[in-house]
């Protein structure tokens, strides 16, 4: 049992992080808080990916030590180096997440300019009011 926990506890903590982030995205009213949650959510996924590349038992960072030597290539042991692929993917994912955050913040500023608040329920109230004002229903007896 202990072994099982030791083998899995990492994953569970990632899942907890994801849940925190997801909850903030869905349940929080403040838009900045939603974005913070989004960041947490995305980093936890990145963490999950990165951890798939981990190898126990002496593997080191995926930078070859004997590069340049002609015979160095033969000496490369797969178990000596961490799996590089998740790292590659996650470099992209980090950039994607920051890009999303950037666009989201830009819309956030637009929203603030328009409504002078960042609380979702207040904005919704304002919008409902303005929509009711902007589109008067013409009562048409034939409709």
């Amino acid at each position: 049992m202990t072994e099982y926990i030791l083998a899995k506890y990492n994953y569970w903590i990632y899942v907890v992080l994801m849940m925190i982030g997801l909850y903030a995205m869905m349940g929080k009213r403040n838009l900045v808080k939603k974005l913070i949650g989004m960041n947490i959510f995305q980093t936890s996924i990145i963490l999950l990916f990165v951890s798939t590349g981990v190898k126990k038992g002496g593997a080191t960072v995926p930078i070859l030590m004997h590069a340049g030597h002609e015979h160095g290539a033969q000496l490369i042991q797969v178990s000596d180096y961490l799996n590089p692929l998740p790292h590659v993917l996650m470099l992209t994912a980090i950039v994607v997440s920051i890009a999303t955050t950037g666009v989201a913040l830009a819309t956030l500023i637009l929203i603030y300019k328009r409504y002078h608040t960042l609380e979702e329920d207040e904005i919704l109230a304002i919008r409902r009011e303005s929509r009711a004002y902007k589109t008067p229903r013409i009562l048409n007896p034939t409709d």
Binding site: I36, V54, V61, H87, I94, T101
Partner: peptide, 23 residues
């Protein structure tokens, strides 16, 4: 600590750095 140095560098500059500045 997990050995993902490239990812860590990027996160330090982009995630912790630029992202915080933007926020």
């Amino acid at each position: 600590e997990m050995g993902a140095v490239d990812v860590a560098f990027t996160e330090a500059s982009v995630g912790a750095g630029i992202s915080t500045v933007l926020f």
